[in-house]
């Protein structure tokens, strides 16, 4: 295996910088979006059940077509990388919940028509909890969940 070419490296860096810029834009946008359409109440719910009821109000089923990528143990509970993707068709929304957090609903993405159903973010987790991903596809809800352990650290081996 050969190290990647210089151009690869450059393109990756450019892409990352671009993403960082987009991040700033998104952040600025969020403040404005907080007014219309922002599911204020859902984000205030303590439990995942209550948040889901407010967001969707319909049943969901576990699906192996929803891929949830999280670490087994968080390297830093303050920034836990979570990503969700799916092979399901016509995805309109992807929601991420952390039931053990003070407010269970962590993120909810509305997807435009034709958008690739793959999202990622960093979540703050105070303690060990399941992370639940909910995908809305063709109007129905599909989920996957995995436990992420938050530990004090320290070694033995």
């Amino acid at each position: 295996m050969q190290p990647a070419s210089v151009s690869h490296q450059a393109s990756r860096r450019t892409a990352l910088r671009l993403l960082a810029l987009l991040g700033f834009t998104a952040l600025a946008g969020k403040v404005q979006a907080a007014a219309p359409g922002w599911p204020e109440q859902a984000f205030q719910q303590k439990t995942d059940d209550d948040a889901l009821k407010l967001l969707y109000g319909k049943p969901m089923e576990v699906s192996d077509k929803v891929t949830l990528d999280v670490p087994e143990i968080a390297e830093n509970g303050a920034v836990v990388p979570v990503s969700v993707s799916t092979t399901l068709p016509n995805v309109t929304r992807i929601t991420i919940l952390v039931p053990e957090n003070p407010s269970a609903l962590a993120a909810s993405y509305k997807l435009a028509d034709g958008a690739m159903p793959s999202v990622g973010c960093r979540l703050k987790m105070a303690k060990t909890s399941n992370v639940v991903a909910v995908v809305e596809s063709d109007g129905r809800l599909y989920s996957a969940s995995k436990e992420v352990k938050v530990t004090l650290g320290g070694c033995g081996g």
Binding site: M1, P3, A4, H8, Q9, R12, R13, L16, R17, A20
Partner: peptide, 13 residues
């Protein structure tokens, strides 16, 4: 990765 730290495969990090 953003800062271009040394990696075996810069594409995947």
């Amino acid at each position: 990765a953003f800062n271009g730290a040394e990696a075996f495969d810069a594409d995947s990090g």
